[in-house]
Every structure is written in structure tokens, then in C-alpha cells.
Design a protein around this nucleic acid. Structure first.
Lengths: 118, 118
DNA sequence: TCATGCGTGTAGTATATACGACACAGTACC
DNA sequence: GGTACTGTGTCGTATATACTACACGCATGA
């Protein structure tokens, strides 16, 4: 099994804590606006991952990409959902076409679109 | 305001009903596995749109693309969520890059990927 | 020794999600 | 004038989501 959301958060937080005591459960919880006991339970997998907003705040604290943390929580950033919902057929087809392409092909695509070649 | 989920379903169902009496609230509800009063309320917007599974069954009944009905319900097909979650950074970047491209550019992209030009 | 901070256990809550059960009034057919 | 079908109103429910409140025992430092 791969690393769960809680395990991953705990690892990242403990890492940061070695260099900065402000990364205790209590203090991180206070900064992201939840109760320490809740964060503790989430990290140990006793509670399911929190809401998108709380995960985003946590990602910021931990210096992580919110998308990645959200993905581990089984979620997808809501702005992406909005993009798909605006043109559902187009983006559904596109994603299903792209799903098996290797990373490098997708990266090339991102780059080419960014550089205005589309 | 644009057509809501319920309004759209009702319109489509009534259309089909003109040609086939089997498209009553009661009979459609029975075929998709919900209570008629529930479908009635959903169509009139008294209840929020149903679950993905129920919407998919409804789309099939009405001969509609499930993606479109789901989008009207404020949802995104769960298989697409899975695709994004597997490579969250890549697909997040990509979708954000593609969000403002016109339909024809996206269609061209879909076609080119399908034809193996990637 | 005692205040301060630590992680965690127990219990409870508010809100949303996704419906079902049942009854009722209207209409159409024979 | 019953039978069969229609849509809908009222009420209730099970499950999930996203947490809070509070207390406990341990460790550390003054």
C-alpha cells in the first residue's frame, strides 16, 4: 500500500519540525484553523481527510502543492471541476484520450500550449 | 439564468413522452430505480440532483451524454476524477492551460491525440 | 513544584446527501 | 362507476461530512 494522506502529512510535518519547533500538531492546527485533536486524528488516519479548504491551508503550511495533497485525500481541486463542467463533453473526451500518455508527452503538451502553439 | 438540471430532465422526458407513453414520471422512475415522488421533486427542483449513479441511469433513459447531465448537476464523472488524481500536478497544469482555448482547438487536440500524433 | 506545552482519548454536533413510504386528488377508459 | 394510471404533497430516515469541546497524562524548564 502507498502512503496515506495522514501518514504523508505527519511525515512532512515532523521533517519541518526538526528545524522549527513551530511545527507541532498544536501550532500547525492553530494556524490552519482546526482543533489539535482533530489534526492528530487525521494524521493517524483515525479521521478521514479534511475539507478542501483545510487541506489547502495545510498544503501551504507544509510547502506542498495543494493538488497533490488533495489527490491523496481522494479529491480534485474545485477550480478544475469548474473547468470541466463548463465544457463537459470536450474535456471528458480529452482527459480519456490523454489518460494513458506518458508524463513526458503530457509535459510537452503543457509546454506547447503555454508557448502559444495552440 | 440557464436551464437547471431538473428543468432540463423534465423537458427531455416530456419530449420523449410525446412519442412513447412509457416516459411518464412513474415509469421512468421505476426503470432507473427511484420512487416516482422523488423524481418528480428532482424535476421541479424541489430536491437537489441525485447521485452520480442515478444521473447516469437517467441519462441512459433519456439518450443523453451522462457528462452533460452530471455537469448540470454540478458534478464531474468519477472516472475523470480518477484520471486527474493519478497525476494531479500534470493534469492540473494541463487543464488550467487549456481552459481558455476555443472549442475548435480542443477538438483538434482530441483528434490528434486519438490519431496517435502524440 | 508548578506552569507551559505536548499529543491524544472520549463524546458530541451541525449540516448535507440521497433517498423511501405512503397517501391523495385528478383523469381516462370500459 | 369502478379500475388503472397519472403527478405530487407530507413525513421520515440512514449515512456521510467536517468538524468542536474538553479533559487527561506526560515531559520540560524555571
Amino acid at each position: 500500500m502507498s502512503r496515506t494522506f495522514g501518514e504523508y502529512v505527519r511525515e512532512r510535518r515532523e521533517e519541518l519540525r526538526e528545524e522549527d519547533a513551530r511545527f507541532s500538531v498544536r501550532q500547525v492546527a492553530a494556524r490552519i484553523g482546526v482543533e489539535p485533536s482533530y489534526l492528530s486524528k487525521v494524521e493517524r488516519g483515525e479521521q478521514p481527510p479534511p475539507s478542501e479548504a483545510t487541506i489547502a491551508a495545510l498544503a501551504k503550511e507544509l510547502g506542498e502543492a495543494p493538488e497533490v495533497l488533495l489527490a491523496m485525500a481522494g479529491k480534485v481541486p474545485s477550480d478544475l471541476l469548474g473547468i470541466i463542467r463548463r465544457r463537459p463533453r470536450l474535456f471528458s473526451d480529452l482527459l480519456r484520450q490523454l489518460q494513458d500518455l506518458p508524463d513526458h508527452a503530457l509535459l510537452r503538451l503543457v509546454r506547447e500550449v503555454r508557448d502559444g502553439e495552440w
